[in-house]
Design a protein around this nucleic acid. Structure first.
Lengths: 139, 139
DNA sequence: CCTTGACCTTCCAGTATCTGGAAGCCTTAT
DNA sequence: ATAAGGCTTCCAGATACTGGAAGGTCAAGG
């Protein structure tokens, strides 16, 4: 298979596949003309990577997952630990975004949004030395 | 004020402040010895930037906010529109993370996490041609 | 045989937002 | 005089691609 086929079947852009080869995630063979020649196992790996990426795993985490996947003697505990770490990272990120969201939503609500210059959003950002809109939740 | 003072008072690392100068967000003066010399207004701007950044605004959004802040004839509608756009971006991001979280949490729960190699997480990632764990929510 | 268009190749640069480090000058205190 | 600490600039790296330029390859049509 050429890169175009693999791109279509894996759902990953050809550019991304080349990038994954650069960083050693896949090692396709080469045809006589210099074109990359992908085996089914390469396609399989790429699809695996694509799905791991949509779950938000970093490239390095994907690399580990792939290693575990290929190690038939792995302990599932290792996979689970990796996934749990990632889950926690996601939870942290969500918490952070929700905090931003709460503050911002409050500010937006307070702003008239008309042709006058008065703006509680800017006022809040300009508050000296305190977390922005830190009492938005209580408001 | 030298950069160290401003860093401490604004809560931003000196490195970041230099970077903000590079991209034109602040324009401190220079003392005879070449050191950056910050006015109160520079400190004020940096603090504004720091708070806008903690609310998740991008640098370019911060640049616009700063312009609006300094334009005493602005219309608050512009600020509000910017904030609303950002709010929507945050909501989208949260939705995406929650979807990941749901799938991943389900998989983690299914994995024994012991010394055996069987692992539903890896199995799911290896599923050919379908979104990973796409029925996790129903499970 | 030649051309055309679609594919493929490599390499370089840019995105976003810093962060770390090296090499070296300035200031202050001892 | 020297040492510590702060300041300067510049380069590189991290993350994960993405776009584009310049050029080789291949299959089809005339």
């Amino acid at each position: 298979m050429n890169i175009g086929d693999v791109a279509e079947r894996s759902g990953l852009p050809a550019k991304t596949i080349r990038f994954y080869e650069d960083i050693g995630l896949v090692k396709p063979m080469r045809a006589a003309n210099g074109y990359r020649s992908f085996r089914d196992s390469d396609l399989h790996k790429l699809a695996f990577l694509g799905r791991a990426r949509t779950l938000g795993f970093s490239i390095e985490e994907c690399r580990l997952l792939l290693e575990l996947y290929e190690d038939k003697g792995r302990e599932s505990a290792q996979v689970k630990a990796l996934a749990e770490d990632h889950l926690k990272a996601i939870d942290d990120k969500i918490a952070q975004l929700r905090s931003m969201r709460a503050t911002l939503a409050h500010l937006v609500q307070c702003c008239a949004g008309d042709d006058r210059p008065d703006c509680p959003i800017l006022d809040d950002l300009a508050q000296p030395s305190q977390a922005p809109g830190r009492d938005a939740h209580r408001a």
